Simulated scan of single mutants.
Amino acid sequence: MGTAEKHLVYCWIERDGAVLFLRRTEGTFHGGRWELPGGTVEPGEPMETAAVREVAEETGLTIRITGERSRHSWMDVTGRDLRVHARIYVAADGAGEVVLNPGEHQEYAWLTPAKAAGLDLLPHVRETLTP
């Protein structure tokens, strides 16, 4: 049997030159590290649909995908025979208030990519700071 595949989608949501970053809740996978809003694509779910759904679940924002920023792939960090694929989409948002899901994220910040570079970012997020 071949390597299993997992697909993740994230959104680069920009407001006034700043991008929305989320900090994972302590005690969760990658707890305390920063990432973009996003998550796992469900079986059979279109990628862009998953991105819109994940952003709504994690931030309460209603977004619209406007393009693709980057793609990344890596082997599972826990050692499973699993290849992870991530797509980062560019999204326009409806300018609502961010409401976090405390089960996943404990903090958010609107930061310029240069400021975000100083955070403890997940590697695929760091790679997308400069397209």
Rank of each mutant, 00 (worst) to 15 (best):
T40W: 09
G2T: 13
G39N: 08
L111C: 07
E26Q: 11
V99Q: 10
H85D: 14
D16N: 15
C11Q: 02
R83Y: 02
M75A: 10
A92K: 02
G32E: 08
T66I: 13
E26G: 08
T25P: 06
V99R: 10
T28A: 01
L61Q: 01
L20E: 06
L36K: 00
L8M: 15
R33D: 10
R83K: 12
R126M: 07
D81S: 14
R83G: 00
V98P: 09
M1I: 15
H7Y: 12
V52R: 05
T130K: 13
M47T: 06
A95K: 15
H7L: 10
A114Q: 15
W34N: 06
E26P: 15
V99L: 13
W12K: 04
S73P: 00
G60K: 11
V99Y: 04
A50Q: 04
L8S: 04
A109H: 04
L129M: 10
V125H: 07
P113R: 09
Y89N: 09
I13G: 02
G94E: 13
H124D: 05
T128L: 04
R53F: 05
L100V: 11
L36S: 03
G60Y: 11
L61K: 03
A116T: 11
V55H: 00
P102I: 10
T59M: 15
I13H: 01
E42F: 08
V125D: 08
T112K: 07
P37T: 08
V99K: 09
R33S: 14
E104T: 13
T62C: 02
N101P: 04
G67V: 00
S73N: 07
W110V: 01
L119R: 13
E54D: 04
P46E: 09
G27L: 10
F29K: 12
G17E: 10
H72A: 01
